[in-house]
Amino acid sequence: SHFELRVGTITLHFDNISEELAEELEKLAKNGVHADEIRRWWEEWLK
């Protein structure tokens, strides 16, 4: 499923992401983690 995450002024787009993972990314964003860090985390997870 597709997921969009708003982090400050940036909107990150994720394809084929589980609800659980989407929730984890939302938690990171709410805790003030920068969009670049979240994207890096996601790319690492995909490997």
Rank of each mutant, 00 (worst) to 15 (best):
F3H: 02
G32K: 04
E37S: 08
W42G: 04
E23Q: 15
A22F: 14
V7W: 05
E4Q: 05
K27D: 08
L21V: 13
L25P: 00
H34W: 08
A35I: 10
L46P: 04
E44G: 07
H2Y: 08
E43D: 11
K30I: 08
N16Y: 08
I17M: 04
R39D: 03
D36Q: 12
R39F: 13
R6L: 09
R39K: 10
W42N: 02
T9L: 12
E23R: 15
L28S: 02
H13N: 05
L46A: 09
R39I: 14
L46S: 12
K27T: 11
L12W: 04
H34G: 15
E19H: 12
W45P: 00
K47I: 11
L12M: 09
K47D: 05
N31V: 08
F14L: 03
A35F: 07
I17Q: 01
L25E: 00
L12E: 00
S1T: 10
E26K: 14
S1L: 14
L46E: 07
R6T: 14
K27L: 11
L25F: 06
K30H: 10
L46Q: 12
A22V: 12
D36A: 11
W45E: 04
N16V: 04
K30A: 13
S18F: 03
T9S: 14
V33M: 15
A29L: 04
D36E: 10
K30V: 09
F3N: 00
H34M: 09
D15Q: 09
N16P: 04
E20R: 07
S1H: 15
K30Y: 11
V7T: 03
V33R: 12
G32V: 08
I10W: 02
R6M: 10
L28G: 02
E26S: 13
G8Q: 02
D15K: 10
L5P: 00
S18A: 05
S1Y: 08
G8L: 05
H13D: 02
E19F: 12
L5I: 11
W45Y: 13
K47F: 12
H13E: 05
K47P: 04
E26Y: 14
R6G: 03
H34K: 12
E23N: 12
W41K: 12
A35C: 03
E23C: 05
A29S: 05
E19Y: 12
F3T: 01
I17K: 00
L5G: 01
T11E: 02
F3G: 01
G8N: 03
H34T: 15
G8E: 03
N31Y: 11
I38H: 01
D36W: 08
S1K: 13
E19M: 13
D36Y: 06
T9W: 05
E26C: 09
S18C: 04
T9M: 10
E44F: 14
V33G: 07
D36L: 13
K47R: 14
E43P: 01
G8W: 07
F14W: 05
K30N: 11
R39P: 01
S1C: 09
N16D: 07
D15T: 11
S18V: 04
R6N: 10
D36T: 09
I10T: 10
I38D: 01
E23S: 13
N31Q: 13
F14M: 02
W41Q: 08
K27H: 08
F14I: 04
K27S: 10
E37F: 12
W41I: 12
W45D: 02
E43A: 15
L28H: 08
G32W: 07
I17F: 02
W42I: 07
A22M: 15
T9Y: 06
E44R: 15
L12C: 01
T9I: 09
K30L: 12
E44D: 10
L25V: 04
A35E: 07
A22K: 15
W45L: 06
A29W: 06
E4N: 02
L12F: 09
F3M: 02
A29D: 02
A35H: 06
V33Y: 15
S18P: 10
T11M: 06
G32F: 08
R40Q: 08
D15Y: 15
